[in-house]
């Protein structure tokens, strides 16, 4: 009885070999298999097709599939490396790997940089930061006068833009983050440390011994 589902799941659209994913990421094979439990749950809440649609992503984050968020859009966009508007299992595992407590800090810094570099210029410019600041205020039902927003941006760029060219490059970003570690607070998910105990059911069916990988 306990062995019936493994082959079926390997034929599910979006499923990828846990051994290969474990080799590419920080997760063990058992952890990748446990993440598949989570992925199955998230990818079946609106359309049960083995892929995470943006509405499903929003539903998981906000418990509301219709809630629009520039930030959730940015995160979805960065997870969806194939840029086809759905997150498959491989994309899900590779992106979450960056959020593991033991993932290299440089990977987290890079991911956060790309979050802000919306136009993919290799720099974070003032307009991009302003747009996100306004989105944050709107999300929090807060308003700030434009001159206050400009003052916050002046202060931010005076500190971060050490080359004084009006934009923040990767090195400047890294220096800023080192000074303000709280900027990276969203880049680590403690849940990922205990993923096999949170989503254990796949692990009990695993065909692969982690000690061999």
């Amino acid at each position: 009885m306990g062995c019936f589902s493994s082959k079926q799941e390997k034929q599910t659209p979006g499923f990828q070999d846990p051994v290969a994913l474990a080799q590419e990421t920080i997760f063990s094979v058992s952890e990748v298999e446990a993440l598949y439990e989570l992925f199955k749950k998230l990818s079946s809440t609106v359309v049960d097709d083995g892929l995470i649609h943006k509405e499903e992503f929003q539903l998981a984050l906000f418990k509301n599939s219709k809630r629009e968020s520039l930030f959730a859009d940015r995160v979805f966009y960065l997870f969806n490396t194939k840029q086809n508007n759905v997150i498959d299992f491989g994309e899900f595992v590779r992106a979450l790997s960056v959020f593991h407590p033991s993932a290299p800090p440089e990977d987290k810094i890079e991911f956060a940089f790309r979050l802000f570099d919306q136009k993919r210029t290799g720099f974070i410019n003032r307009e991009e930061v302003k747009q996100m600041l306004i989105a944050l205020l709107s999300e929090s039902d807060m308003t700030l006068a434009d001159d206050v927003i400009e003052t916050i941006l002046d202060k931010t760029f005076a500190e971060a833009d050490t080359k004084n060219d009006g934009k923040i490059d990767k090195d400047e970003w890294r220096t800023l983050v080192m000074k303000h570690p709280s900027l990276m607070r969203n880049m680590t998910l403690p849940y990922l440390k205990d993923i096999t105990t949170s989503f254990p059911s796949f692990v009990f069916r695993s065909e692969v011994d982690d000690s061999n990988t």
């Binding site: 984050l61 996100m132 944050l136």
Partner: peptide, 26 residues
């Protein structure tokens, strides 16, 4: 008036949309 103590990135990092812990919660 109170001085502004947070920079823009600190404020932005407070967004719920950037906190992925929701993916793991029921």
């Amino acid at each position: 008036t109170k001085p502004i103590v947070m920079n823009a990135f600190e404020l932005i990092s407070l967004s719920r949309g950037l906190n992925l812990s929701g993916l793991f919660e029921e």
